[in-house]
């Protein structure tokens, strides 16, 4: 099932599929947020934004707006 990264629950893992190139900065790719990599939401900030995630051994925080531009696939067994 494909959803966007912002829809992922805390602790849930997904595989990055693709993203909107206009909304996702190159810096995010450089920090390891690449298609094919596993991503996990670790924490959500107190007012629901930004998101704290672990991707490709990197620990990053991004805003919801950016997360929505990233499509992830949830592996079936984790459902």
């Amino acid at each position: 099932m494909d959803i966007n990264l912002a829809q992922l629950q805390i602790g849930q893992k997904g595989i990055i599929q693709e993203f909107n190139i206009d909304l996702v900065p190159l810096k995010l790719l450089e920090m390891g947020c690449l298609p094919g990599n596993e991503v996990q939401i670790l924490q959500v900030a107190p007012f629901g934004d930004p998101l704290y995630l672990n991707v490709n051994d990197s620990y990053l925080a991004i805003r919801l707006e950016t997360a929505r531009a990233i499509t992830v696939q949830i592996p079936n067994e984790s459902k």
């Binding site: 206009d22 909304l23 900065p25 810096k27 995010l28 920090m31 930004p50 704290y52 990197s58 620990y59 990053l60 925080a61 991004i62 805003r63 707006e65 950016t66």
Partner: peptide, 11 residues
Amino acid sequence: SNSYFVVEMPG
């Protein structure tokens, strides 16, 4: 401007 915001959370 786009809401770019990327922060590394170091150990």
